[in-house]
């Protein structure tokens, strides 16, 4: 059985193959390759690349269509709402990603060390809130954060929150959004991480145990390095999703009686520029800002952890 991270053995080419038949095979393989990816390529071009290129074009032009260089970036960057929006998101992301690394992996390792049936029940329970991601999860948490109806009212009482308005004060939002993201998103990642752990050959774990490794050592020295690729994958995607925060501040803002800024997150700011100010160029500039952050982070993770080591 192949593990997730094992290197592929190169295709054994028969030594009796003549060079000609090898080349033929390669060419045939090439045409087939194009056929397999062509449909996806069209979707990629139309709904991935074209809009991205369009966003970049918009970001460097004025509403009248003139090339204006970095002007849109400078003007949006100097906007008084710009920095706070990015600070908000940075604070939220640091809490959310840290909890992913520590808690999600910790829970997955625990689940992997107990019996399969029991762990299946836990995984299901942890995953269940994933069904409420997005608007539904925000609604549920508006209930949870409202001390007048919340089942956690005792807990909220510790912080002396008397009504919803006090719980969702702007300063509390990064941690609240991290809790919502964790509640709705962690289960899915636990399932994925557990799946990756499951793919580790048993012999490896047994060998470690024979060599005297305890559960902790097996987890840290054998299991963790073997699922590194999936952890990277998780962090990249969670970061990407995290920078997109839109529905959470939007809906919580709806319930805050105007206490929370309608431009709390960068995406809200971009939306505001686009639909309140009718300035798609400013909106595109912020979109490109987010894009660059996401790409830089991805590049660092991809090149540092060799995500493509299956080659």
């Amino acid at each position: 059985m192949k593990s997730v991270v094992s290197h592929q053995a190169s295709t054994p080419q028969g030594t009796t193959d003549s060079l000609g038949s090898k080349l033929r095979r390669k060419r045939k393989n090439g045409v087939a390759g194009y056929a397999f990816v062509s449909g996806y390529f069209i979707l990629l071009a139309l709904f991935g690349i074209a809009p991205a290129v369009y966003a970049i074009c918009l970001a460097f032009t004025s509403t009248g269509g003139h090339v204006v260089g970095l002007s849109n970036f400078i003007k949006t960057g100097e906007d008084f709402r710009f920095l706070p929006a990015f600070e908000n998101i940075a604070e939220y992301l640091s809490i959310w990603l840290a909890s992913l690394v520590v808690i999600v992996i910790g829970l997955a390792l625990m689940l992997h060390s107990i019996s399969r049936k029991v762990s299946a029940a836990f995984r299901f329970i942890f995953y269940l809130p994933g069904a409420l991601a997005g608007a539904a999860s925000v609604l549920v948490w508006l209930f949870m954060l409202d001390p007048t109806v919340s089942p956690w009212r005792l807990f909220l009482g510790i912080f002396d929150f008397k009504n919803l308005g006090q719980t969702i004060l702007p300063g509390h939002l990064p941690i609240i959004f991290a809790i919502i993201a964790f509640w709705a998103g962690a289960g899915g990642w636990i399932v994925v991480t557990y799946g990756a752990l499951n793919n580790i050959p048993n012999e490896l774990i047994e060998a470690a145990e024979l060599d005297g490794a305890g559960p902790m050592q097996t987890a840290l020295r054998i299991k963790l390095p073997l699922i590194k690729k999936w952890i990277t994958f998780m962090l990249i995607l969670a970061f990407a999703a995290g920078t997109q925060l839109f529905v959470e501040p939007q809906l919580v803002g709806e319930a805050s009686l105007g206490l929370i800024s309608p431009t709390w997150s960068p995406n809200e700011l971009a939306y505001y520029f686009a639909f309140q100010n009718n300035n798609f160029n400013y909106a595109a500039a912020i979109s490109v800002d987010l894009l660059v952050i996401g790409l830089l982070c991805a590049a660092v993770l991809v090149f540092r952890t060799k995500l493509f080591e299956v080659e």
Partner: peptide, 16 residues
């Protein structure tokens, strides 16, 4: 490109 588009915030493409 697939990896990068996948990582790219989907909302960055919403307005375009």
């Amino acid at each position: 490109v697939t990896l990068f588009v996948m990582i790219m915030p989907a909302t960055a493409l919403v307005l375009p």
